[in-house]
Design a protein around this nucleic acid. Structure first.
Length: 536
RNA sequence: GACCGGGUAGCUCAGCUGGCAGAGCAACUGACUUUUAAUCAGUAGGUCGUGGGUUCGACUCCCACCCCGGUCACCA
């Protein structure tokens, strides 16, 4: 292929140009053109702009801690001033650069830390002095030198050699950072565009330490939960994401096709039915942390692809699962965040157990004045209309019950509470309530007005389960697209015997939102779903 | 899907009642060897989301569309 502009041969054209012409084009912002031009200058000066490796002795935080420990060990104040730590090798991105002519101060940033370095032209080797002229904000460099404290009091590496690790060709959207007297960091004109921050999460993470912190918390939450469950003899398992029949929840699936089998496959909407098959298989206690997919709307609390923790616990009923839930969530919060008290969307909550228990029907009757079992459909419709549901006429009984409950009860629950014993028709996978089969042994854990956990005493009677599936099928035939499929294989598994089992599903994204105070799921998902860009 | 708000330089934003497209940061040139939102002098940088319309003249007013955010609806 030939570049139409310079006539040189090229493997491919980017916007109709070879890469050197593309980077030099007036269509590129000036900072990009300048940075591309610096690549050639670097190579001329004998500097490879994209290195293969760098052997660092310390992270930035570790180097800082080492120096401070040495300083603390000095006895005399006079000694403290002259404390110097032997050379370290550290690496990071250039976050700031103050060029004073013969020398320059820069801050480097890595995953967790930030450290100032001082580059003096007469101290760094010749190649490094040439390199100093060609550095930009965002570049990755590695430096070596002793650590001292400047007259202005900042711990600083006196650079004796510097190596370019990776040249950035595109300017990162750094703000200007001001560090106040109290050590608080104020960023001026940072990276604010929410869409760009989600699409280019790499840039968001690179310039916003608090975003990195959010995802560090997320990672710690996941591993703390694994540890908590592993300690209690739960077995982590992996079940199919691609399924010939979806189930375990009520939602629209994503569908795809397997060519060899010539079979429609679905991305799972829940793990539930496979995990309970494992309990049939004597695995006793299992859990899975994985992605579920629901082909529905995208908003502040819904991403089509989200992370669910499901666990199943043989010989336990839903009351045991309530205890497990409140203990696990509060233990994990305490371990990861050091507290059980959180503020979320202006609401203050305490996750310390025990959580409040609220009987579903009592809360419903208190809020609506209606008995959820005795009230007829028209009364429910009238009540729903009174709460502002204009489409009440089109809703099924289950939808009416649920919408009234969500609008009038769930929104009002701030401190964590277990809402339990839902009407049986809302819970096709749960055992009937002991002594009152109009209800199911089911609970939802509600915090800050949203559902965090959904759990049951699992239905282990294959005859009852098949009948419930059949009732779902009738709803489906009547046009309810969200009603469940009959899963004959699952019923077969139940026929082999599911011991009494308690189980739950918890939205991991929502738990992380709660712990980090984020009110949008986009802020706790690294790459949230967005409409594809036309051109990057 | 409905309503509201937004889309202007690489980033963050201003732009009034229609009259030459602006600032700070980043970039570039120069000065400066302990600075830290470094400083000082200068330079350059634009398809004002897209397409129509009104007008002598549109970033600005009108219409349609696209994208983002919020609220509501949907998602029990």
């Amino acid at each position: 292929m030939t570049c139409p502009q310079c006539g040189n041969e090229t493997a491919g054209l980017r916007d109709g140009l070879c890469l050197p012409c593309w980077y030099a084009s007036e269509d590129r912002p000036k900072p990009m053109r300048d940075r591309f031009a610096k690549l050639a200058q670097l190579r001329e000066a004998g500097v490879e702009p994209f290195a293969y490796s760098f052997d660092r002795t310390d992270t930035l935080d570790a180097a800082l801690e080492k120096f401070e420990a040495l300083e603390a060990a000095a006895d005399e104040p006079a000694d403290k001033e002259s404390v110097e730590l032997d050379a370290v090798r550290i690496a990071g991105r250039i976050l700031s650069y103050r060029d004073l002519g013969g020398s320059a101060f820069a801050h480097l940033g890595d995953r967790d830390g930030r450290l100032q370095v001082h580059l003096k032209k007469n101290l760094v080797e010749e190649e490094g002095a040439a390199l100093m002229e060609l550095l930009d904000l965002g570049d990755w460099i590695g430096v070596e030198g002793p650590i001292f404290r400047t007259r202005r009091g900042e711990v600083t590496v006196r650079v004796e050699s510097v190596k370019l690790l990776s040249k950035t060709l595109r300017p990162l959207p750094f703000g200007k950072e001001e560090v106040g007297e109290d050590g608080e960091r104020v960023v001026h004109s940072g990276f604010a565009d929410t869409e760009a921050r989600s699409r280019q999460r790499y840039a968001d993470l690179a310039v916003n330490p608090d975003v990195r912190e959010t995802f560090r918390v997320r990672s710690r939450v996941t591993s703390a939960i694994r540890r908590w469950l592993d300690d209690r003899d739960f077995l982590e398992v992996e079940t199919p994401v691609l399924q010939p029949l979806y189930g375990g929840a009520l939602a629209r699936p994503f569908s795809t096709h397997h060519h060899t089998l010539d079979q429609t496959m679905y991305l799972r909407i829940a793990d539930e039915l496979y995990l309970k098959r494992l309990i049939v298989g004597n695995l006793d206690r299992v859990y899975e942390i994985g992605h579920d997919f629901r082909n529905e709307g995208i908003d502040r609390t819904h991403n089509p692809e989200f992370t669910m923790l499901e666990l199943y616990y043989a010989f336990a009923d839903y009351e045991a699962v309530m205890e497990l839930t409140e203990n696990m969530v509060s233990d994990v919060a305490l371990e990861v965040m050091g507290t059980t008290k959180f503020e979320w969307d202006g609401k203050h909550v305490d996750l310390a157990p025990p959580w409040k228990r609220v009987r579903w029907a009592d809360a419903f009757e208190e809020a609506t004045g209606l008995d959820p079992i005795a009230a007829d459909d028209s009364a429910l419709k009238a009540r729903a209309q009174a709460t502002g549901r204009e489409d009440a006429d089109t809703l099924s009984r289950v939808q009416l019950l649920d919408s009234l409950f969500s609008d009038l009860v769930e929104d009002q629950i701030i401190d964590p509470a277990f809402v339990y014993d839902h009407p049986i028709e809302m819970s096709p996978l749960a055992k009937p309530k002991r002594g009152n089969p109009a209800f199911a042994e089911r609970f939802e854990a509600v915090v800050c007005g949203f559902e965090l956990v959904n759990a049951f005493s699992e239905l282990n009677d294959p005859i009852d389960q098949w009948t419930r599936f059949a009732e779902q099928q009738l709803l489906r035939d009547a046009g309810d697209q969200d009603a469940m499929n009959i899963d004959e294989d699952y019923v077969r598994a139940l026929e082999y015997g599911l011991p009494p089992t308690g189980g739950f599903g918890m939205g991991m994204d929502r738990l992380v939102m709660l712990l980090t105070g984020k009110t949008s799921i986009r802020d706790v998902v690294l790459f949230p779903m967005l409409r594809p860009e036309e051109g990057a």
